[in-house]
Amino acid sequence: MDGSVAVDDDVLTGRTDDEIVENLSTVRGIGEWTAQIFTLVHLGRPDVLPVGDLGIRRGYGLGWRVQAPTAKALRLIGDGYRPYRSVLAWYCWRADELYGMGKPSAVTGAGDT
């Protein structure tokens, strides 16, 4: 409310993903995951991989038929998908929905009519 945290799209457009996550995470109740999802979904950034998201980790395991990676392992795996890690995240969410019987997601558009 005091203006110390930028939330205006015009201001955020000029910042890196890491700067946005760091800035938003200063607000009590907004953690890294929430800030990353905001950056990926609201701002449409192409290179965001929320490794703390269980659906993404589980979907990676299901999609690649391996054990679901830890957040640390997925961070390393994700490096090979730069600069399009957001696409990897989307496919992982979708794999969790299709193969893991996960609930339809607003992010992937599954279940939209």
Score class of each variant (00 low, 15 high):
89 A>S: 14
38 F>L: 07
111 G>T: 11
113 T>K: 13
4 S>F: 01
58 R>K: 15
27 V>D: 01
91 Y>L: 12
38 F>Q: 04
95 A>L: 07
48 V>W: 00
45 R>D: 10
46 P>G: 12
39 T>G: 01
81 Y>N: 08
82 R>C: 09
73 A>R: 10
32 E>Q: 05
24 L>W: 01
41 V>E: 15
63 G>N: 04
58 R>W: 08
20 I>A: 00
31 G>S: 01
94 R>P: 12
12 L>F: 02
78 G>I: 12
96 D>W: 10
19 E>K: 01
22 E>K: 04
113 T>I: 13
35 A>F: 03
113 T>S: 14
107 V>H: 12
81 Y>D: 08
14 G>R: 03
15 R>P: 10
21 V>K: 02
44 G>S: 03
75 R>T: 11
11 V>D: 09
37 I>V: 15
59 G>R: 00
41 V>F: 06
107 V>R: 11
77 I>Q: 05
17 D>F: 05
63 G>S: 04
44 G>H: 03
69 P>N: 05
55 G>H: 12
75 R>I: 08
113 T>C: 13
68 A>T: 04
15 R>Y: 14
74 L>I: 06
54 L>A: 13
50 P>D: 12
17 D>P: 05
19 E>S: 01
38 F>G: 04
9 D>E: 14
64 W>K: 09
91 Y>T: 08
78 G>E: 10
112 D>Y: 13
80 G>V: 07
98 L>A: 11
18 D>P: 02
18 D>C: 00
85 R>M: 09
45 R>P: 09
22 E>S: 14
33 W>N: 03
29 G>E: 13
62 L>Y: 00
111 G>L: 11
99 Y>H: 13
77 I>R: 06
30 I>P: 00
104 P>T: 12
1 M>N: 02
36 Q>E: 15
55 G>S: 10
32 E>W: 01
26 T>K: 01
108 T>R: 00
75 R>S: 11
112 D>Q: 14
101 M>H: 15
102 G>S: 07
112 D>A: 15
70 T>Q: 09
13 T>F: 09
75 R>Y: 13
2 D>T: 10
1 M>G: 03
24 L>D: 05
112 D>R: 14
3 G>L: 08
74 L>P: 00
85 R>H: 07
100 G>F: 06
65 R>F: 07
32 E>V: 12
97 E>S: 03
103 K>N: 12
2 D>F: 00
80 G>D: 13
12 L>S: 09
14 G>E: 10
95 A>F: 09
65 R>K: 15
61 G>Q: 04
103 K>Q: 13
68 A>V: 06
100 G>R: 10
18 D>Y: 01
32 E>I: 07
89 A>L: 07
17 D>Q: 11
62 L>A: 00
93 W>A: 06
58 R>D: 13
71 A>K: 03
82 R>T: 11
4 S>R: 08
48 V>C: 01
39 T>L: 09
90 W>Q: 07
48 V>S: 01
